[in-house]
Each structure stands twice: as C-alpha cells, then as structure tokens.
C-alpha cells in the first residue's frame, strides 16, 4: 500500500508535466528552432525573416501531403501513393481542361471548363485512395506494399496520358489562376494560404473532434477499439480517401501554378511526406504523433536542406542529409521516451 502511495505521488508530479506527445512535439519544435539558429550562425545571410517565410512557402506541397500521411500513420497505416497522385491529378486536370481540337494528341483534351476539369481530376485522385482502402481494409494486404503499387499505378496513368512527358498547351486562360493567385497584397500565393488553413483545420480535427480521437484509438490498439464499438475499417477508408483528396488538390494546384500536367511531378514527394512525419515524431507503429510535429519536421528538413545549399553543398546532398536526419530523429525519439519512462 505504501508502495502505491509513493507511486501515486510520483505520478501526481508526472501528471503536471506534458503528455508524451506534447513532449515530443516540443522537442521537435525546439530542434527546428535550434537548427535554424545554428544555420544562421554557419550560413551567411541565413538569418532573415524572408528566409523563415520561404522555409514554409517553398514546402507547401509536401506539408499538405504530410497532413494525410500523418493521419494515416497515426492510425497505423502507410500512404506512399501521394506522390503518384500529385502527378496523376495534375495531368488529369490539364487533360480534361485542354480544348478538344489540338494539333496533336498531347495538345487536345476533353474541353471541360476549368472548374469541372479540376473536380473530375480530384475524383480521379480519390479513386486511387479508394483502391488503397480496398486493398488495405478488405484484402488486408500490408499498406506499404499496396501504396507502393498505387504510387506506380497513379504515376503510370499520368505517364500514359502524357505519353511520358507533359501536357501544357491549349489550356483555358483561367487554368493558371488558382495556383498563381497572390494573397493579401503580398507575394504569398493561394496554395500556401490553403496549406495554412489545412494545417489549422487538421490540428483542430486531430485535437478536438471525435474523428481525431478515433484515429488515435485505432492506431493505439485496433483490437480494443473494435471491441469498444469503433468501426476501424470505415475510418481507415475515410483516411485514405482524405489523404488522396489532399494529394489530388496539391497536384491540381501545382498543375495550375505551372500551367502544365507533368508526369514526373511529385516524384519522391511520398518519401518526403513520410520523412517529415517521422522527423515530427509520428510513430510508425501508430497511435502517436501530431500534425504540428509533422509541420516542424518539415521545417527541420527545409532548414537542413536550404542551409546545405547555403553552405554551397551540391543539391546531391539532400538524400544523405535526409537519411541522417531521419536516423537521428528516430534514435532521439526512442532515447527521449525511454529516459522519460525510466
């Protein structure tokens, strides 16, 4: 009994501290700030407000993808198809919007109005998400294999539609509006603002809604969640559809920004989205992680890569740096949590 009392007192102290999740998120945020300051010392002209803005604005696409990927990881599932979907939806949007009478196959499309083309492209993206869901939920194939397959499937369709290159002619004049619209009289473009809104909504959903709760429950203990009346299958289906829709939107915005549908766009974005989630402390086993953490993970990655560029390292350093960053993040997280629970 005394043992229990002592344990109780120790736990009382513990309760005043942060939850594990907030602890890791703060660590990640701290690491992001520390890295930025370190880079400011090492790299000339790094310490500028514009640089901070750029870290975010240059990475809106990956951060947006990271939201869906993070939710899925928290529920215990991978999604590596997002990069392929970015290419697919962009290509589809362009194809649907191109006017019907072009000079050759690559310059003629379906002649849809821009908005309809974009909606249809989004539906196409969500179909890939539906395939993910069917294979993972109904057939119970491991999500890593399924989404590697759909990654190739989506990109493959994009390549077929563009005959391995891109479509960029015969587009309606309003096609480039969404991706290039600047906001609030600054140089910040609409996609960046949408990303910010997405992050806010995602944080709200994750922290404050039943949907967010269920995502954690499924990842933490799928057996107990089913016995507690959670429809795991249905929830994971929704998450895959959501992730695919976000990737689809990113692809459409990129297509609008560049006024082209390029079949190699979004290459390796699925890995970057996974990398920033892992850097942000999302646990691969599920049930642990946060969108905020993912966001700071993206900042870490962006700081490291842009500092590397500032240090006149060749862009080829990016893969090595990513590998080292993820390795350190995973080891640090394991170590920090082990110490905390010791």
């Amino acid at each position: 009994m005394t043992d229990q009392a002592i344990a109780g007192r120790r736990l009382a102290e513990r309760d005043n501290r942060l939850s594990d999740e907030m602890f890791i998120t703060s660590l990640v945020a701290g690491a992001a700030v520390a890295l930025f300051l370190l880079a400011s010392i090492l790299v000339p002209n790094f310490f500028q407000f514009q640089n901070v803005v750029n870290l975010v604005t240059n990475n809106w696409a990956v951060i947006s993808l990271g939201v869906g990927v993070t939710f899925l990881l928290v529920s215990g599932n991978f999604d590596l198809s997002v990069g392929g979907i970015v290419a697919l939806s962009g290509v589809l949007a362009v194809w649907f919007a191109q006017s019907t009478e072009g000079a050759n196959a690559l310059s003629s499309g379906w002649g849809m109005p821009t908005w309809l083309a974009m909606v249809c492209a989004l539906i196409g993206a969500m179909l890939i998400g539906a395939i993910n869901a069917v294979f993972v939920v109904a057939l119970r194939v491991p999500s890593i294999i399924v989404t590697l397959g759909t990654m190739m499937l989506a990109r493959g369709i994009a390549q077929v539609v563009t005959q391995g290159s891109q479509r960029n002619t015969n587009l309606p004049s309003d096609f480039g509006v969404l991706g290039n619209m600047t906001m609030f009289g600054t140089s910040i473009k609409l996609p960046v603002v949408l990303m910010a809104v997405l992050i806010l909504v995602a944080v709200f959903v994750e922290r404050k809604t039943v949907f967010g709760r269920l995502t954690y429950l499924i990842g933490a203990n799928p057996v107990a969640s089913r016995l507690s009346g959670v429809d795991n299958a249905r929830h994971v289906i929704k998450l895959y559809l959501f992730s695919a829709a976000m990737a689809g939107a990113v692809g459409i915005l990129l297509a609008s920004e560049f006024k082209s549908g390029f079949s190699n766009r979004g290459m390796l974005m699925e890995f970057d989205a996974l990398v920033i989630s892992l850097l942000g402390g999302v646990a691969i086993a599920g049930g642990f992680g946060s969108v905020i953490g993912m966001f700071f993970g993206a900042i870490i990655l962006a700081t490291v890569t842009s500092a590397a560029t500032g240090l006149v390292l060749s862009p080829d350093w990016q893969f090595t740096l990513k590998a080292i960053a993820v390795f350190i993040a995973i080891m640090a997280q394991t170590w920090a949590l082990a110490r905390r629970h010791a």
Partner: peptide, 14 residues
C-alpha cells in the same frame, strides 16, 4: 468515454 464517444461531442467536436 470511448464506447460512446459521440455523446461528448456536438457536431463532431469534442
């Protein structure tokens, strides 16, 4: 609240 989680939410907000 897990077994009746919607009881603690209005319009999905916890």
């Amino acid at each position: 609240p897990i077994m009746n989680i919607r009881k603690l939410a209005s319009f999905g907000v916890f």
